[in-house]
């Protein structure tokens, strides 16, 4: 098995899987307010897609329409080939949903809460008795399976929510702000769990405004603002388009400052070179220019002491793209 690591490790990004979620010109209006405006979204099987944007950008409304919990004003939605507003049961049997503010029946135990969900999903008693402890065990709640949910912390509730998703064995999981309100460690574990689910071949659509977290797990993201999806693609893709690269290479070198700066500027793909300290230069480039920069410094007769790269972050992409939108929302 380990012989073929090289080929099997590369994710199948080129051979994109079948389309599992597709919306076209999807629009939702509440009176005069347009919550979602002509949304065209495509999600492929097995990928993790992030819907990103400020609160009130229309992410939750989009999710509700995907689940058939809200009727679209116009446009069409297809989830696994079903129309959520006409065949919601088919959609909801195959799609797991983790709402942003997740609640359980506090007076019931974890097991009883999941048992109710199992019955609503039409699982047989025997099947439920098998799946429920397995799902709860897997989320690390095995010890509190018979405790009332009232005693659970926010993180535990979140994990119980995921246990509920596992119980359904869905093809697609939709999560609304899944890491909101979790402490950093819990959030980290949660993101790892998302990657595990992805390994199992489950398609995941998640919405968030915590960009640095989402960046770690999403294959593709779509940036939302005022009900519109402004731009979508892989993070590198967006960085290329929005920041024209977004790589920042810090070079620490001693030598003739002007000569070094000119040499660095002459490299292909360099947009800007700043001298932040006497011996420190920051290069803004379209890609990772470290080796080019190193040889440029050496060739220009400088002495290289340090070289560091900062990959483009979603936060940056986001703030550049949405300066106006976030200003408006913040007021």
């Amino acid at each position: 098995m380990s012989v073929v690591t090289a080929s099997s490790r590369t994710p199948p990004t080129k051979t994109q899987g079948q389309v599992v979620i597709e919306t076209s010109q999807l629009t939702k209006r509440y009176g005069k307010f347009t919550a979602v405006d002509n949304l065209n979204l495509t999600v492929h099987r097995g990928e993790v897609f992030g819907l990103l944007g400020p609160n009130g950008a229309g992410k939750t409304t989009t999710i509700l329409m995907l689940l058939g919990l809200t009727e679209p004003t116009s446009g069409s939605v297809r989830v696994l080939g079903f129309d959520p507003s006409r065949e919601p049961l088919d959609v909801k049997a195959r799609v797991g949903y983790l709402p942003d503010a997740i609640g359980f029946y506090d007076e019931l135990t974890a097991r009883e809460n999941l048992a109710y969900i199992a019955r609503l999903n039409g699982l047989s008693q025997a099947e439920a008795a098998k799946r429920i402890p397995a799902a709860i065990e897997r989320m690390g709640l095995g010890e509190v399976i018979d405790h009332p949910v009232a005693t659970f912390s926010r993180g535990m509730r979140q994990r119980l929510g995921v246990a509920e998703l596992l119980l359904k064995q869905p093809e697609i999981i939709i999560m609304d702000e899944p890491t909101l309100g979790l402490d950093p460690e819990a959030a980290h574990n949660f993101l790892n769990m998302i990657l595990q689910l992805k390994q199992e071949g489950i398609t995941i659509l998640l919405s968030s405004h915590l960009l640095h977290q989402v960046q770690q797990v999403c294959d593709r993201v779509g940036l939302f603002s005022n009900g519109r999806m402004m731009i979508s693609g892989t993070v590198a893709d967006l960085a290329q388009r929005v920041l024209r690269g977004g790589y920042r290479i810090t070079v620490q070198a001693r030598g003739e400052a002007d000569v070094l700066k000119r040499a660095l500027l002459a490299l292909p793909g360099v947009q800007k070179v700043e001298q932040t300290q006497p011996e420190t230069f920051v290069i803004h480039g379209a890609h990772d220019l470290r080796s080019d920069a190193a040889s440029a410094v050496v060739n220009a007769g400088g002495k290289l002491y340090g070289l560091d790269v900062e990959a483009p972050s979603l936060d940056e992409i986001y703030s550049v793209y949405f300066k106006e939108a976030s200003n408006g929302a913040g007021s």
Partner: peptide, 14 residues
Amino acid sequence: NRRTMSRVLAQPIY
């Protein structure tokens, strides 16, 4: 108020 509504209605029921 218990925030269970959306979770329950996300199950395959009307």
